[in-house]
Design a protein around this nucleic acid. Sequence first.
DNA 1: TTGTAGGCGTTATCAT
DNA 2: ATGATAACGCCTACAA
Lengths: 322, 322
Amino acid sequence: MISIKDVAKHAGVAISTVSKVLNNYPNISEATRKKVNAAVEELNFVPNSVAAALSSKNAGRVALMIDLNVTTQAIDEMAMRYISGAITKAMELNLDVITLFVFMFQDKTTEELIRYLQSQSITGIIIYGVTEDNQVLQELIASEKFKCVVVDGEHVSENTSSVTIDQREAQYEVAKVLVEETSAKKVLYIGGDENSYVTRTRLEGMERLVREKKLELNRKNGDFVEGKAKEIALKYGNEADIIVCASDLMAVGAKAAMKELKIERPICGFDGIALMGYAGHGIYTIRQNFAEISARAMEELQRLMTGASGKMIEVEYSLIKN
Amino acid sequence: MISIKDVAKHAGVAISTVSKVLNNYPNISEATRKKVNAAVEELNFVPNSVAAALSSKNAGRVALMIDLNVTTQAIDEMAMRYISGAITKAMELNLDVITLFVFMFQDKTTEELIRYLQSQSITGIIIYGVTEDNQVLQELIASEKFKCVVVDGEHVSENTSSVTIDQREAQYEVAKVLVEETSAKKVLYIGGDENSYVTRTRLEGMERLVREKKLELNRKNGDFVEGKAKEIALKYGNEADIIVCASDLMAVGAKAAMKELKIERPICGFDGIALMGYAGHGIYTIRQNFAEISARAMEELQRLMTGASGKMIEVEYSLIKN
DNA sequence: TTGTAGGCGTTATCAT
DNA sequence: ATGATAACGCCTACAA
């Protein structure tokens, strides 16, 4: 492997000088900068990021912490979009990335997790899909030992940022379209799981609409699970005019229920996953650009890792009809 | 961070001794082994894998090279299963993993890719979804600069293994069930993309059945794309008794075509993805355990990285009805 | 069986 | 502005 040492020799300068131009240090003459860059080109030198990570504590490696349920395929789509979005952006930013799944740390304590991350020279973490009852992850964030970006969360601190779409507004919008189109009065709202940021905020959006339109709201939690949503819809769907679901997958469940009951109830979903192309037709939903959200999270993490302090970031979404 | 040095001090031995017990070297007395392990426990020591990767050329880091099309959601499911299977096993085996997508290297030459991998101290690679016309990847494998495991390939050499299911037999089996159940004579076979191992071998399985059952075969390639399969089925479905598809996604397309033509033709698929639970009912398919295939690939890679030479590995599959 | 010391490829601190 | 040189944490001959 060709190393910084070879470049130094080739350019006729010291190793440390090469390192400095590579890392854009100040106080380097234009002349030597040119010499070095030429040598880099000629030798096709690619810096060894492992060595960099070892020697410098701010040549950060970042970990993707995926807490999504890996058992339903709809979630796979979100996870893949998140992962590829993050990794692509990381490559652009020259950041090292490792991918981790929360289920791999099920029986580990917070301290063990922290030690593991440190042993990997991780300095930044992006967390996807945390729920508020996940002790370990919450403690990990609270420990402030790493720079963290929480996707779909509301953590903000010196070392922590969050990125998400405006869940309240999005839920409000999609439900509003359906309500106005159908002149519905009674709505069955199937929310996500308890203890999650998105469930709470989407519900708030729904409640705002309920107030504005003076609707009658029946609210149940389907835990983002198709089967549960179906059960709920079977039980309460008949007495509702429309069914508003906090996820596309649950919308599919609700639709299946309607079919079983042999009744028609307009439904809307949330997320904009491809599955809807197969299982749901003509239903309104909120399209989230998962890859972009994730890319933004990576950018924000880089900002944090270079000393900036945390903030809240909102990404655009769109209302679509499948 | 607590390091091997601290452990050495705590145990009252030399650093190298600690390293040796950590890496299961021979010629270590039971006494010191115990001492060291005790110290490791007490200090909650976790070896820094970055340092290990830097210093040793066989403390290998492995790269997952995903060449699956990241645009269709059915493929997301496979990719996620592959990724999580590999990463989980890697953690078990104490291997470092980074995830890469082939599209990230679109405009790169083989040499550039190789240099990038080397700069990451990668010594082993698992490749998912390569086609034979992907020059760069083929050259990467042929370069023999890394230990490679190809999922669904047939590369075997000193440094290369392949792992897959018995595609021929699987295709034969699933098609046979359908043929026998329907007493079909004319079959439309919608294969995958040209230049891929699975397309070729599945076709061989189909051809065997054709010979044995003296069927009339109409064979087209749907490139594993739902839409293309639909077109093909629209065109040729009517004159066939059954439609055998080389993937579930294409089976969904074929089914949509039948619906459009308002005719009934038994269909079978391949892969066993969850999407079929939504879009296809009661159709036969081959269930591949993607996570297990990937885990096996990781095990095999570890074998290669510790000096073993390449071989072909076959993983079990099952015939199911959705 | 155990310890000493050099090296892996960078970064970072000092001199110069 | 540039160059030695000591870390970073671990592995591995080689020596003892």
